[in-house]
Design a protein around this nucleic acid. Structure first.
Length: 339
DNA sequence: TAGGCCATCTGGTCCT
DNA sequence: AGGACCAGATGGCCTA
């Protein structure tokens, strides 16, 4: 039986693919080599083509006459296909680059345990929503609510990762596990949470403490509670674990969160660090370079005499982001003090 | 070994 | 015609 033109194309393609299917990162050079290979193959293809064209005495087929797959046409087809493949590769690389950028912006970033694409998008969505809620309400959320919002709908491993970034026990903030725990986000009257997370709920959520390797929660991603607003069940956790027993985790890899970009439209950009109100709400404290200079989070008013203050000094030990962090905190303070 | 994740190829569709 | 975008198919790698 005569193979259809389409089948022939597919055959040629599959042969071509077998030859080409050594995926190359570089693309360009190897592509030229492959092109040469193809041209050599052309010589052999011609024989098959002639065989096909021999069937002159067979009944003519109706419908639009299919163009003969001449050598030139096959050649053009292959070249076009290769170009398209290269473009598609580049396109996907660009997409992946963008996703990698998103990974670094999103609160939890670990070089040892990369978030999957889908989880990165979910976390980003949660993060955007949580931040927009902050803007909408004009109030600083407590850490518990913020983390709850971040972890909504994430898989258990990702939830563990986020928890690890915060050095929290997932059980302490996941509503599924702590039905009595009040969920502060969204507040009453707030916009309904988009997505509803019905499509992908963390299965089981029976995880205990997250297991290393932990990622990092960029300190600037963490909203501390307003002074006088207790962490509730988080507080002993902070006092007992976060400060003293914090396991080491990766140094932050991501640049400071562009959260100040989010707030840049406000008119408080130039709040001087010296103007910080010591009772401010958005303190970010780096753990003074303790074991490996790991950032630590202080809850307001704990046993640490400086809790609740902005530890400006401590900022200096962190990857040269101190100025950025200061400015960011200044902006946040201005916003949250005005509210 | 099954399942998840990923990169790549591919053909279809839409647009310029 | 050619490029961008998309979704399906496929195979490789890794992990529980």
């Amino acid at each position: 039986m005569t193979r259809s033109v389409r089948e022939e194309q597919e055959s040629v393609e599959s042969e071509e693919q077998q030859e080409l299917n050594s995926p190359s990162e570089g693309g360009g050079e190897e592509e030229e080599d492959s092109q040469q290979q193809l041209e050599e193959e052309e010589e052999e293809d011609d024989e098959d083509e002639e065989e096909e064209e021999d069937g002159e005495n067979k009944p003519k087929r109706r419908g639009p006459k299919k163009k003969k797959m001449t050598k030139a046409r096959i050649q053009r087809f292959k070249v076009r296909r290769m170009k398209a493949n290269a473009r598609e590769r580049n396109r996907m690389h660009g997409l992946n680059d963008a996703l990698e950028s998103l990974r670094k912006i999103v609160p939890c970033y670990s070089k040892t345990q990369k978030l999957s694409k889908i989880e990165t998008l979910r976390l980003a969505k949660n993060y955007i929503w949580a931040l927009s809620e902050v803007l909408r309400s004009g109030k600083a959320p407590d850490l518990m609510s913020f983390v709850q919002a971040l972890c909504k709908g994430l898989s258990q491993p990702t939830t563990n990762l986020v928890a690890g970034c915060l050095q929290l026990n997932p059980r302490t903030f996941l509503p599924e596990q702590t039905p009595d725990l009040p969920v502060h986000l969204p507040p009453a009257g707030a916009a309904t949470y988009p997505g509803h997370y019905s499509s992908y709920q963390s299965p089981g959520l029976t995880a205990g403490l997250p297991s290393p390797p932990y990622g990092t929660m960029e300190p600037s991603h963490i909203f501390h509670q307003v002074k006088g607003q207790p962490y509730g069940s988080m507080e002993p956790f902070f006092d007992g674990v976060l400060v003293s027993d914090a396991p080491p985790f990766d140094p932050p890899l991501s640049p400071p969160l562009s959260i100040n970009g989010n707030f840049s439209s406000f008119k408080h950009e130039t709040v001087a660090a010296a103007d910080y109100d010591k009772s401010f709400s958005f303190s970010v404290h780096y753990g003074g370079g303790g074991a490996g200079g790991h950032p630590a989070i202080y809850g307001g008013g704990g046993s640490n005499p400086r809790c609740g203050e902005l530890q400006v000094d401590g900022l200096m030990g962190f990857d040269g982001h101190s100025h950025h962090e200061r400015m960011m905190n200044a902006q946040l303070n201005a916003i949250f003090h005005d509210s």
